Computed example of a mutant assay.
Amino acid sequence: MRYFELRCKAFVKKDIAFQASFELLSKYISFCMYQEGMGEVHQKEGFKYYVFGGLLPIEKDKIYKQGNLYSFTIRSLDETLIDTLSTTLRQNINNESLQVVEAHKKTISQFFITELYSATPVIVSVNNGKYWTMNESGDIVQLQKQLHENAEKKYQSFFGESLHVTNNFIQFIEIKNKVPQNILITKEGKSIRFFGNKFRIVPNEDEVSQKLAFVALACGVGEKNSYGAGFMLGRGIR
């Protein structure tokens, strides 16, 4: 099993607020897909099989400055998608806020994962259209169950095969934030906030758990990955 990533550099044409950056990158990526006839990937219901991390470094005042270069990473299980974006991201796209100037592809083979850390908020839906936080739910068992089911469904959907699951792939989960984190988007002129959390996750060591941990690293933990949610950093033995 492998995943593919693009390590990109973007030139910022005008100041960008941190809160606006996730939607900006999401729209930039989806526009590139439409340019190459891959718009159905972003439009279709279900999993998109990719995730991206935010612009780095984050400035102290959380404003990305005009004239500076910032990096971001896109990951996917789908090599065709990554190859397409590798070409289209660097084209002269008419975007008033930024321009991608570099996009280098890297292939990562499955390795033994000891820990996962969320670099962007992990989004998990609960009842009544709300999102999992300690205040809204606080049910850690339910959280682990939903994160596991999400990863398992991504695996089964992408690879077209079932796993013989005997236990949750998560051995231990630690909440790293004191207050909920959020990702802001606009839809039909209205602002929408997806609330989430930053986690440290220790996966189990069995073969199935390691496959699911790798899928989580490859295309994101939880929901709203195409908006940049659930982008993970991994530690382990390569």
Results as ranks from 00 to 15, higher is better:
Thr84Glu: 07
Phe47Met: 08
Glu59Ser: 12
Leu56Ser: 10
Ser125Phe: 11
Leu116Pro: 13
Arg90Trp: 00
Glu136Ala: 02
Leu55Thr: 04
Gln142Gly: 04
Arg75Val: 01
Asn95Ser: 09
Glu136Leu: 10
Leu77Tyr: 01
Ile82Thr: 02
Ile140Met: 13
Gln142Met: 11
Ile82Gly: 06
Gln91Lys: 15
Glu115Gln: 15
Asn92Leu: 01
Tyr117Asn: 13
Lys130His: 13
Ile123Cys: 08
Tyr50Leu: 13
Gly138Leu: 09
Ile123His: 06
Pro57Leu: 00
Asn95Trp: 06
Ser71Ile: 03
Thr133Asn: 09
Tyr117Thr: 05
Ser109His: 10
Thr133His: 14
Leu89Cys: 07
Leu69His: 08
Asn127Lys: 06
Ser97Met: 06
Gln91Gly: 10
Ile82Ala: 04
Ile108Trp: 08
Phe111Gln: 06
Asp78Gln: 04
Asp61Ile: 12
Gln110Gly: 10
Pro57Ala: 02
Ile93Pro: 04
Val122Phe: 06
Asn135Trp: 03
Val51Phe: 00
Ile108Val: 14
Ile82Asp: 04
Thr80Ala: 10
Leu81Pro: 14
Tyr117Ala: 02
Phe111Glu: 07
Tyr64Val: 10
Val100Ala: 00
Ser137Tyr: 07
Ile140Thr: 12
Gln142Phe: 03
Phe47Asp: 12
Ile108Cys: 05
Thr120Glu: 15
Val100Trp: 00
Lys65Met: 07
Lys145Thr: 09
Ala103Lys: 07
Gln144Tyr: 04
Tyr49Arg: 03
Ser86Ala: 10
Thr73Ala: 00
Gly46Thr: 12
Leu77Met: 12
Tyr64Gln: 11
Ser125Asn: 15
Leu116Ser: 09
Ser71Met: 03
Asn95Thr: 01
Lys65Ile: 06
Ser118Pro: 14
Ser125Thr: 03
Glu102Ala: 11
Ile58Asp: 01
Tyr70Pro: 14
Leu143Val: 05
Lys60Asp: 07
Ile123Gly: 02
Lys65Pro: 15
Glu79Gly: 02
Gln91Asn: 13
Lys48Arg: 10
Pro121Arg: 00
Asp139Trp: 06
Glu59Trp: 12
Tyr49Asn: 15
Val126Tyr: 01
Val124Cys: 13
Phe112His: 15
Ile58Gly: 05
Ser71Ala: 13
Ile113Asp: 12
Ile82Glu: 08
Leu77Gly: 06
Leu143Ser: 04
Thr114Ser: 12
Ile82Lys: 04
Gly54Val: 02
Gln142Asn: 15
Thr107His: 11
Ala103Arg: 03
Lys105Thr: 05
Gly138Asn: 09
Lys62Gly: 00
Leu116Phe: 00
Phe112Gln: 14
Gln99Gly: 01
Val101Thr: 10
Gly54Asp: 09
Gln99Phe: 08
Asn95Leu: 12
Phe52Gln: 05
Gln66Trp: 00
Phe112Cys: 15
Lys145His: 06
Tyr49Gln: 10
Glu59Tyr: 07
Gln66Thr: 09
Gln66Ser: 15
Thr87Lys: 07
Gly129Lys: 14
Val51Leu: 01
Thr84Pro: 14
Phe112Asn: 13
Pro57Gln: 05
Thr88Cys: 10
Tyr131Lys: 11
Leu77Arg: 11
